[in-house]
Structure formats: structure tokens, C-alpha cells
Amino acid sequence: MARFKFQLEPVLLQRSTKEEAAEQALALACNEYNNRCEILNYTKRRLEEALILDEENIDVFENMHLDLYREFLSKKIISQEKDVNDAANALEHSRQAAVQARQERQAIEKLKEKHLRIHKREEEAKEQKLVDELALYSHFRSTE
């Protein structure tokens, strides 16, 4: 039986490499998104803690500093929410790129499987032809 050689094997390898790179980029984007969410949640918790503080037991300057701190945290939360949205967009873009790379690789793999099936059918047909010829020769020899 002749060995199967897929002509597009280098393309399949390149597509597999591209898919792996896209999956790694997706993992990095996911980590970045999770980190941004954790930072945002931490800042929100700090703001909640600052809002809970008892303002009656502090003097005017401490109250002023506390108000400035709350304002700073509010602005920081707005900035971090924008960062989270940007990270979410990057994550979605990476996810789409990974899906696209997977589909491209699978298309080449399906083509390879199709070529392999054709190759096997051709080999089976050659083998059957050889068996038929051998049977015909043995039949003619036995009748002589």
C-alpha cells in the first residue's frame, strides 16, 4: 500500500500554529479582563468602606480629606470601568480570532480526511484489481 502524502500538510501545520497562537492570545485577554474586573471590584469595595465611615467622630479636615478620597475613588472607578470595557472588547475580539483560526484549521483537516478517504479507495481498488488478476491467472493455470 502506497504511503499517503497530503500536499497541504504545511498549510495545515501553519493553521494549527495560528490556532494555538490565537488561543494563547485569548487566554491572555481573558486574564487581563479578569485582572481589570478584580481591580475595579477592589476599588468599589474601598469606596463602600469610605462611605460607611462614621463622619460624626472626625474633625472638619479629616472630613474634607475623606470627601476628596471618595471623589478620587469615584473618578478612579469610572476610569477602571472604561478599562474593563476595553478589556471586554479585546477579549471578544480574541475570542472571534480564535474561533476563526479553529474553523480555518478544521477546513484543512476535513480536506485532508477527504483526500485520505480517496487515497484509501484508490489503494483498495488497486489491491482488488491485483487480487482479481491473480485469481484469473490461477484459474487459467488450473484449466490448462
Rank of each mutant, 00 (worst) to 15 (best):
R36Q: 07
R36M: 06
R36I: 01
R36P: 00
R36H: 08
E38F: 09
E38D: 09
E38Y: 08
I39Q: 09
I39W: 01
I39M: 06
I39F: 06
I39L: 14
L40W: 00
L40G: 00
N41R: 13
N41Y: 10
N41V: 03
Y42G: 01
Y42C: 02
T43E: 03
T43P: 01
T43N: 04
T43M: 04
K44Y: 07
R45S: 10
R45L: 13
R45E: 11
R45W: 04
R46E: 04
R46V: 05
R46Q: 11
L47F: 06
L47Q: 04
L47M: 15
L47V: 07
E48W: 15
E48Y: 15
E48C: 15
E48L: 15
E48H: 15
E49A: 13
E49W: 14
E49V: 14
A50Y: 02
A50N: 10
A50S: 15
L51Y: 12
L51R: 12
L51C: 14
L51G: 09
L51V: 09
L51Q: 10
L51S: 07
L51F: 07
L51E: 14
I52E: 13
I52Y: 13
I52W: 10
I52G: 06
I52K: 12
L53A: 11
L53Q: 09
L53I: 12
L53C: 05
L53M: 13
L53E: 08
L53S: 03
D54Q: 06
D54M: 08
D54N: 12
D54S: 05
D54R: 06
D54V: 03
E55Y: 05
E55P: 02
E55T: 10
E55M: 10
E55S: 10
E55F: 07
E56I: 10
E56Y: 12
E56A: 12
E56G: 14
E56T: 15
E56M: 13
N57L: 08
N57F: 03
N57P: 00
N57G: 04
N57H: 08
I58E: 03
I58D: 00
I58T: 03
I58Y: 03
I58F: 02
I58M: 07
I58N: 02
I58K: 02
I58W: 02
D59H: 00
D59V: 01
D59A: 01
D59S: 02
D59P: 00
V60L: 01
V60E: 11
V60P: 00
V60D: 05
V60A: 07
V60Y: 05
V60G: 01
V60N: 01
F61N: 14
F61P: 06
F61R: 14
E62Y: 11
E62H: 11
E62D: 12
E62Q: 10
E62V: 05
E62I: 03
N63V: 08
N63T: 11
N63S: 14
N63Y: 14
M64K: 12
M64T: 13
M64A: 15
M64D: 12
M64Y: 14
M64C: 11
M64P: 02
M64L: 10
H65A: 01
H65E: 10
H65C: 08
